[in-house]
Amino acid sequence: MTPQKRTGTQQHSPQQGLERLNIRISGSGGQGVISTGMLLGEALAIGDGKNVSQSQSYGPEARGGATRADIIVSDGEIYFPECNRLDILVAFTYEAYEKYAIEVKAEGLVLADEQAVDVLVGNATTLQMPFLELAVKKFKRSITANMIALGFLATFTKIVSKHALRDVVQEQFAGTKYEELNIKALEQGFRLGVKHGRKKK
């Protein structure tokens, strides 16, 4: 996965050749979609020192409903914090996948959960990954699926460094009983990404 040289149609940066990535994490409220976006954004901005803008959209209900977090990573200034043409989409539910897969660029990448998504739409490369299955099987908690996906994203696409992610997750959950669980899930994601990265070659 190489970062796109050209930006989306609606958001041109004046300096040509600036690298810009539009990433969207989507799913249902309560799956940790916004937390994932926040952690990824923080790892990229603070850990890796990139320009990052992370925005989100969610419904008025606390659980359920379509939720998304957009992360824009750029070497230049980010004018508008939302994106329409995506480079990477992570989908935890079919509803979210169906809604946003069409917005992924043809050369983009979709990471869909294996359990949630069975019918594929759009032209982009789609990988069905067992995030939810692994979360339940290894950690007995479906909530850790987002951490596995985050780890996968780091080692498979290499857009974010592993140590930055680990730092951010550790910091976020420091002193709570979820610290170890989340770190373990993240490591699981790292391994999954490495495994699939090799397979691709």
């Binding site: 954004g41 901005a45 990052v52 992370q54 925005s55 914090p81 939302e82």
Partner: peptide, 9 residues
């Protein structure tokens, strides 16, 4: 809402 909930450096 966008500015309030958006995260940046």
């Amino acid at each position: 809402e966008l500015i309030g909930h958006m995260r940046e450096k």
